[in-house]
Simulated assay, not measured.
Amino acid sequence: MNDQALLRDKTKPAEDDRPVKLLCKDVWKVFGDGAKAFLSKHNGAPTSEDLNKAKLVGAVRQASLEVRRGENFIVMGLSGSGKSTLVRCLSRLIEPTWGTIELDGINLLKASPDELIEIRRHRMGMVFQHFALLPHLTVLENIAFPLSVQGVDRKTREERARKVIDLVGLDGREQFYPRELSGGQQQRVGIARSLAVEPEIWFLDEPFSALDPLIRREMQSELLRLQSVLKKTIVFITHDFDEAIRLADRVAIMKDGEIIQTGTPEELVLHPATDYVAEFTRDVQRAKVMSAARLMRPVLSSVEYGGTVKATDKVSTFSARIVGVRKNFLVTAADGRSVGEVTPDDVIDLLADRDQRQEAQA
């Protein structure tokens, strides 16, 4: 695509050519007697009225998503939206009532109990809000524990445990017990334990929600650092949109068991599909989600630039600099080509719109 085509098409998300790692199609989790027969009768597409008449509860309703290899995929929603139930269906910790779930083309719903155990032990990692560390085991022993369940010999499992201890920054605490650690350190142990099995896909269900705000932000930074090194496929559950903005490649928003919109944080904020998504994202600072590519204008050759930013950089990361120097910034593509420019006035207008919306809501 040439530079002008990029400018014309800058509101369109870039195609992601990474292969699909996890596929979820038309998945239901319905609680109540005869739920499976009920869904079969309605061909996997009952209405809310149908569910109510049958006195069934649809915790997850016809959920479909694709998670690509190496993607940070966030599933979010308020309490009771079905997000935690969905992630447990994806790993078959609870049995879906209907639908298709595939990991690298393997239908997990047709896997035998033994096959599923092997997949969970060797290909999946899981971290939950409650650390669930074994109090009588040291940090080293807690992290090595899933490897001992796999039958890995002691020397090998301790060597691997020490590697992930180094990776998550717990050096020197190998012989500490959980009670001797802070909340953030305990969560690092939980993360290290899930990484010890070298999973291909990583499920994290609100892993930081019980932490204090400062520690929570520290753990978000740690997750981003680990992902930059490990390139895992991540499915992360949260109810916090600020957390989603910081961590996500894409976000799926759930309400009443349904996925109502999936997209990048930028797409969700700028192009909400429903009133609910618009309300959900109303207080989000646009500068946090809008990229330079979205705000840029065509390049003017006579302009003296005050700096350079990448097309993918969020406006919030350079807003202070561009307003401070009062000069346009050049926007470059991943290969270094000049594709546009951002002006201080456009950045100020974007920030001012945020202030105006806050005043209107007051």
Rank of each mutant, 00 (worst) to 15 (best):
P344D: 02
V284D: 02
E206D: 06
D353G: 13
P207I: 07
V229Y: 02
D353E: 13
Q129P: 07
G151C: 06
V235R: 02
G70P: 13
E180W: 00
S84T: 14
A35N: 09
A111E: 05
D249R: 11
Q361F: 05
R157G: 13
A111K: 06
K55Q: 12
D153I: 08
D3L: 14
D345M: 06
E66S: 15
E49L: 13
L116I: 06
E243M: 13
P19G: 03
A196Q: 08
L147N: 08
P272Y: 06
F38A: 02
I260V: 13
Q186W: 06
S319D: 11
L270K: 10
T262A: 00
G172F: 12
K288A: 05
V277L: 10
S48H: 09
T156D: 12
G263C: 07
L39F: 06
L133D: 12
Q62T: 14
P135A: 06
G172D: 11
G307F: 10
D249P: 09
T85C: 07
R357S: 11
E258Q: 13
S91C: 11
E95R: 05
L214E: 02
S194F: 03
V323N: 14
A192R: 06
I201H: 14
E200I: 04
Q4A: 10
G172V: 14
A333W: 01
E174C: 04
V309L: 10
Q356Y: 09
A320Y: 14
T156F: 09
K310S: 15
D242N: 10
P265A: 06
A278G: 03
T47P: 03
L108A: 09
L195I: 14
N52P: 03
D3W: 07
T138V: 10
L181P: 04
V75Q: 09
A196W: 05
T156A: 14
I348S: 05
S301I: 05
D335C: 12
T97W: 01
E102H: 04
L7Y: 15
P344I: 09
F38P: 04
K327R: 13
F280C: 13
D114P: 00
V57R: 00
H271Y: 04
D166P: 04
R162K: 02
H136C: 00
K55G: 00
T47L: 04
H122R: 14
L109D: 08
V75R: 13
R18V: 07
D33A: 15
V269T: 12
S301P: 07
P146S: 11
E180L: 08
Q187S: 04
R216N: 00
S79W: 07
D249F: 13
S81E: 09
